[in-house]
Amino acid sequence: MSTIAEYAIVILLLTGGFFTLVGAIGLARLPDFYSRLHGPTKATTVGIGSIVMASVVFFSTRGEGIGISEVLIVVFLFITAPVSANIMAKAAMHMGIDPAKGTRGHPWDQ
């Protein structure tokens, strides 16, 4: 394996782990449900995206062909993450969960 590929894998892995961790810290730390919703979308998009790119680079430098299944995982997550975030926000608004103090504006109640 060439040195450049190894550096690329290391950087991609650490970026992915970092953003996954940041998303989880946000989930644990932020004050109300609506701001916690921001954590998973970020962990999905950047974190898993970087880890999967590391996997693609790793397996293609080993001469096993370019990994297509990995790309399918990322595309699927990118399509589904907004849908699940949206439906969870709708459920929270339907249950009347209050946003944290200091939030300007207000959720609809339809």
Partner: peptide
């Protein structure tokens, strides 16, 4: 709406009827 949810910092929560 998907784009808004994917970019960190904003989440689209609902569309009016």
């Amino acid at each position: 709406a998907s784009t808004i949810s994917l970019t960190p910092g904003t989440v689209s929560a609902d569309v009016s009827d």
